[in-house]
C-alpha cells in the first residue's frame, strides 16, 4: 500500500488564538503570508483593542504566533517591529519629519504622493491626511512582516487613499507581509482584502465584506 502523501500544510504567518483583552473575546483569526484580510465591526466593538493586543501593547490572555513563534518568546520591542500597528491617530514627537524616519532613504514617499522635500517638513504643520500617509511610510521603515492598519485612510481624499492602498498592496506582494485592515467602508474592504472578518460580541467571524 502506498501511503498517501499529505500536501504540506503551511502555518499561517499570523495566528491569533483565544485572545482575550479588556474583557472582550476570545478572538481567533489567522492571516497567511501575502494575504490581506479586512476587519469590520460597529464602533466600540473593540477593533482597536484587538489590534493593540496583537501588537502586545495591552495585557491579554491567549497567544499570538508569528510564523509559528509565540509572541511571549520574542522581546516585545522586536515583536512590535515585526508586527507593526498603525493607529488611527499617529503621534510625532520631534520637530522634523525626517527625524522620525530612521534610516537614510524612504522608498515610499514618492508612491504616497510626497516629494523628497517632505523629509524636511515641520511636523507641526502637517495636515491630518499627510500625517496618516507619513505614518505608514514610517511604519514600513521597520520592514514589518505583519501590518495592522486601523482605518488608515480615515482622513484621506480619494486620490491619497488610492495611493495608500497601492503602497500597501505593493509592499505585501514584494515582501509577503500579512495585512489586517480595519475599515468602515465595505467598498474599501472588498477592494483591498480577499477575506473578510466581522467583529461581533461572540468573537471574530469570517463572512462578506
Amino acid at each position: 500500500m502506498v501511503a498517501l502523501e499529505r500536501p504540506p500544510v503551511s502555518d499561517p504567518l499570523l495566528r491569533v488564538s483565544r485572545l482575550i483583552t479588556h474583557q472582550r473575546g476570545p478572538f481567533d483569526l489567522s492571516i497567511d503570508a501575502g494575504e490581506c484580510v479586512s476587519l469590520r465591526g460597529p464602533s466600540g466593538s473593540g477593533k482597536s483593542l484587538l489590534l493593540r493586543a496583537i501588537a502586545d501593547l495591552d495585557p491579554h490572555q491567549g497567544e499570538v504566533w508569528l510564523d509559528g513563534v509565540a509572541c511571549a518568546q520574542i522581546p516585545a520591542p522586536q515583536w512590535r517591529r515585526q508586527v507593526a500597528l498603525l493607529p488611527v491617530e499617529s503621534q510625532w514627537w520631534l520637530d522634523e519629519v525626517s527625524a522620525h524616519l530612521s534610516g537614510k532613504d524612504c522608498p515610499w514617499l514618492i508612491p504616497l504622493g510626497f516629494g523628497e522635500a517632505a523629509l524636511g517638513w515641520q511636523v507641526s504643520r502637517l495636515s491630518s491626511g499627510e500625517k496618516q500617509r507619513l505614518a505608514l511610510a514610517r511604519a514600513l521603515m521597520n520592514r514589518p512582516r505583519v501590518l495592522l492598519l486601523d482605518e488608515p485612510s480615515a482622513s484621506l481624499d480619494e486620490v491619497s487613499a488610492a495611493a495608500l492602498e497601492a503602497v500597501v498592496s505593493d509592499y505585501r506582494h514584494d515582501t509577503g507581509a500579512a495585512v489586517l485592515w480595519v475599515s468602515h467602508s465595505a467598498a474599501q474592504a472588498a477592494r483591498v482584502a480577499t477575506r473578510h472578518y466581522q467583529l461581533t460580541p461572540q468573537g471574530v467571524q469570517e463572512g462578506e465584506p
Binding site: P77, R80, R81, L85, P87, Q91
Partner: peptide, 15 residues
C-alpha cells in the same frame, strides 16, 4: 500627558 507619544514609540519598536 504624553502617553500617546510614548505608546507610538513603543509601537515603532522602541524599548
Amino acid at each position: 500627558q504624553q502617553r500617546a507619544i510614548i505608546e507610538q514609540r513603543l509601537m515603532l519598536g522602541q524599548t
